[in-house]
Design a binder for these strands. Sequence first.
DNA 1: ATGCGAAAGTTCGTATACGATGTAAGAAAC
DNA 2: GTTTCTTACATCGTATACGAACTTTCGCAT
Lengths: 239, 239
Amino acid sequence: MRNTKLEGLSPGPTLIERAYEAILDAISDRRLEPGERINQEDLAGRLQISRQPVGQALNILKSQGFVRDNGRRGLIVAPLEREFFQSIYQLRGALDAMAAELAAGRRSDADVVEGRGLVAEGRRAMKSGKMEALIDADKRFHMWTYRVAGNPLLVDTMGLYWNHLRRAMAELLRRPSGRDLVWDEHQAILDAIVAGDADEARARALAHARDASARLVEAIPAPAVPASEDEARAERRRA
Amino acid sequence: MRNTKLEGLSPGPTLIERAYEAILDAISDRRLEPGERINQEDLAGRLQISRQPVGQALNILKSQGFVRDNGRRGLIVAPLEREFFQSIYQLRGALDAMAAELAAGRRSDADVVEGRGLVAEGRRAMKSGKMEALIDADKRFHMWTYRVAGNPLLVDTMGLYWNHLRRAMAELLRRPSGRDLVWDEHQAILDAIVAGDADEARARALAHARDASARLVEAIPAPAVPASEDEARAERRRA
DNA sequence: ATGCGAAAGTTCGTATACGATGTAAGAAAC
DNA sequence: GTTTCTTACATCGTATACGAACTTTCGCAT
């Protein structure tokens, strides 16, 4: 029962798509630092392709807020700014609450199994202490709620936002304050969804988003490390 | 007191940006029909530029869901699909509710004046019967709530969604059923925001989104007019 | 007529080329 | 030694060129 209508041959990943993925990944896990200047030629060289697909990928990234115009001096990786992440968390609060509420009314048996697995995985990641795994498990749990909620647009939209959040997460999880708390809260959301208690699920999700927001906002240095043009210039002079 | 730090010279709209605006506009007001096939060369010719910036603009549009891959046969304007618009309205409900709630706690005197003006304008547009003006006024009122809510990301995100909605709106407003209702509901939201009653504002916004959703969903033909490849092919043959 | 196969035509992705604009470096004047 | 002018360099946006994959058309055989 696979490919019942096989007219659906996808044209395969183009260089643009691969460049997009590669660059977004690098930005998300901070191999490309916030505020760092971006050079098309350099990126193209590292990816072993021409500037063309790189430029197109960067344009998409720009429209999604991951990179930003830097006057006439090309692009920079979007700096980490408190207000921006507060904005994201505000939206996330509203959407997570909605997602949890919907999920409580729609979860299937398979969903429940998967959800429990994700929480277990998260707790394991927590014990392992590996930051990468922890961030990943966090995202995966929440993406699960969006999926179970049954709104594809929600999955796409929040998926993008989570790439933004990932950049700040590293900062956040560095301090172990309340790491356990996170997965207790996830557990509570899961339980409410499993129980089919929509109101409770909504309330728990909202509380979790608020807590996460508070934790994150204090983790981002207040004046937002702008990595200014002057700094960049100085750096170049040094080299 | 203008331009205190005048380092901010913007590089001016590039061809990519202008092409993006032009194409998005054409899609939004249905000069490019849902399901219609898109030809880079043709577009480039009409805009009097080369294929290059057109292709880049289309790539951004694709990432935003306004156009869609069509196998190996290039791109098509995204068809109007019931489920997609239901998804949008679901998100919009959550975000409009949040926006109204926040706006009720933050509106300034200037905001109030502007809001009243927008509602008045909307009622005028309604009487004039001009569809374009009506759709525009609708969007403008809601964008006002997002702005007053003070979350820039909300403005951007919903701004994009409204471009999607605009495509379906034409369909919707063709039937005058409950056209007056819309602006009564807007009035109620405005009043609650002006009064600073966050709970009431939230409730009104949520109700409005639900009503709008119901109206829209029944306005979109159920099987979504896919304007399939075969149709397109037939059309070409005719020409 | 109908089915098959080859050749021509479309259309896109990607590479390369070019020009404009801004930045950095070095020389000349004070 | 500092400042200003000029020349070289870097980098991006845009245009053009090319190749690959698919579609359509047209001729030929049945």
